[in-house]
């Protein structure tokens, strides 16, 4: 009997779980690093239409975003309900596009600049007038690669 008791005393009964939190924290930090938070708060309602001929935008750093839609409820008092354009985090006009593009261009090395794509996130209910104006501004600024953001349509 005494023999048995001695053996049981020596063996450590459980695997230590003390390092488990560290492992989970590591996972947590990994996800926190990897997921990119949306850098700009959306001030306009954007509900993109659906399409089938979609191309995926590969390099995030080469993409600049232009949002067009009606101002969200809490901005309607100041900005009205007509469709507006948002560049970065503020309401803008077509005249601000060249500077916006130039600022984005300046962050990239020269050999990558021809790959810059403008992602147009436009609400489906917006009329083409403002879209045409933006397109003209993009053409004048020689930003010709454009991606009309759209969701996948399932037939």
């Amino acid at each position: 009997m005494a023999h048995f008791e001695k053996k049981r005393g020596k063996a450590s009964p459980e695997v230590s779980t003390a390092s488990l939190p560290d492992i989970i924290f590591m996972l947590l930090f990994f996800f926190m690093m990897v997921t990119v938070m949306r850098d700009a708060e959306l001030k306009v309602d954007v509900n993109t239409p659906e399409a089938t001929e979609l191309t995926k935008l590969e390099k995030k750093s080469l993409v600049n975003y232009i949002f067009i839609g009606r101002p969200k409820l809490n901005y309607r008092d100041t900005y009205g309900t007509k469709p507006r354009m948002q560049l970065g985090d503020k309401f803008s006009t077509v005249a601000d596009i060249p500077l916006f593009l130039e600022k984005h261009k300046a962050t990239l090395p020269e050999n990558q600049r021809q790959g810059i794509t403008s992602s147009l996130k436009i609400d489906g209910s917006v009329t083409m007038g403002i879209v045409a104006d933006v397109k003209t501004a993009l053409r004048k600024a020689n930003q010709l690669k454009v991606n009309y953001s759209a969701g996948k349509r399932v037939d």
């Binding site: 989970i24 996972l27 947590l28 996800f31 926190m32 997921t35 990119v36 938070m37 949306r38 993109t48 399409a51 001929e53 979609l54 191309t55 995926k56 935008l57 995030k60 993409v63 794509t117 992602s119 147009l120 397109k135 003209t136 993009l138 053409r139 004048k140 020689n142 930003q143 010709l144 690669k145 454009v146 991606n147 009309y148 953001s149 759209a150 969701g151 996948k152």
Partner: peptide, 24 residues
Amino acid sequence: LLIFFLVTTTIAEDKGVLVRLPPW
């Protein structure tokens, strides 16, 4: 915490119709 982050972060899938505008 991990699950919270997994749920709240939407991996933004950026897809769309690629168009090349004519030069101005």
